[in-house]
């Protein structure tokens, strides 16, 4: 059987809110090392990769590898019934066709069990090679969210450029153009307010803002976001999940024909 008890249940609620509009159905791959998920959006332009390590759970047991096929909208409906401070336990039998979500209130005076039907999903996994990216930028996640949202009101695509000075976001549309530069900034009081640029080569790529906007639904998971770029490769937008792992989004670029 599989069982995982997560003291900070709100993390799971946040993960679901971040991915449920991008991906419809996906397998949660459970093994003794944790829970992993990889899924593409229906157009195969964006991909979600989630890792929740066993060590981040208060209790974790997985007797044999399980692929739990889950409709994310339905799981989100169930998790919305958990309080933000609740402890959430996931449970599934090896041969079962359901998953149980147990919610415990912080002072243990309310225990809820929600059972959800699982589905059979043929998952398509992409092999993503380890890559030395040409540019890696870490910046406040709320700042990234704001920039992407602001640019979305002006254009459909953004050119993201990284030089050793910083990262720039540019767009254009019927009403005009916009260009935002965030410079490397390591002299701030709080580490989470820093913008750091690690660069081997300047890079500039074009992406659809609609997807970048969708990724920023993960902002609540982490105060910082890391953008990894290489020429003619999908961008990686990563939100680290404290003590547990990460939520990563990959987005294929637009390329001049």
């Amino acid at each position: 059987m599989f069982e995982g008890r997560l003291l900070q249940g709100s993390l799971l609620k946040k993960v679901l809110e971040a991915i449920k509009d991008l991906v419809t159905d996906t397998n949660f791959d459970c093994s003794e090392t944790g829970i992993a998920l990889q899924a593409m959006d229906s157009s195969h332009v964006a991909l979600v990769s989630l890792l929740l390590k066993d060590t981040g759970f208060d209790h974790f047991r997985c007797d044999r590898n399980l692929a739990l096929g889950i409709n994310l909208q339905n799981m989100s409906k169930m998790l919305k019934c958990a309080g933000n401070d609740d402890i959430i336990t996931l449970k599934a039998e090896d041969e079962g066709d359901t998953i149980t979500f147990m919610f415990e209130s912080p002072n243990q005076d309310k225990i809820s069990d929600f059972e959800m039907k699982l589905m059979d999903i043929d998952s398509e996994h992409l092999g993503i090679p380890d890559t030395d990216y040409q540019a890696i930028v870490t910046m406040p996640s709320a700042e990234f969210q704001r920039i992407v949202r602001d640019l979305s009101s002006i254009g459909d695509t953004a050119v993201i450029g990284v030089t050793k000075e910083g990262i720039s976001f540019s767009t254009g549309g019927d009403i005009g153009k916009a260009n935002i530069v965030c410079r490397q900034n390591t002299n701030v009081d709080k580490e989470e307010d820093q913008t750091t640029v690690e660069i081997h080569e300047p890079v500039s790529l074009t992406f659809a803002l609609r997807y970048l906007n969708s990724f920023t639904k993960a902002t609540a998971l982490s105060p910082q976001v890391t953008l990894s770029l290489s020429k003619e490769l999908p961008i990686v937008v990563e939100y680290k999940i404290e003590k547990m792992g990460f939520l990563r989004f990959y987005l294929a670029p637009k390329i001049e024909e």
Binding site: H44, A208, L233, P234, A252, I255, E257
Partner: peptide, 14 residues
């Protein structure tokens, strides 16, 4: 004109 690539243009199905 730039065209939207799909992830399959970069990564292999496994």
């Amino acid at each position: 004109m730039s065209s939207q690539k799909s992830l399959g243009d970069f990564f292999q199905l496994r």
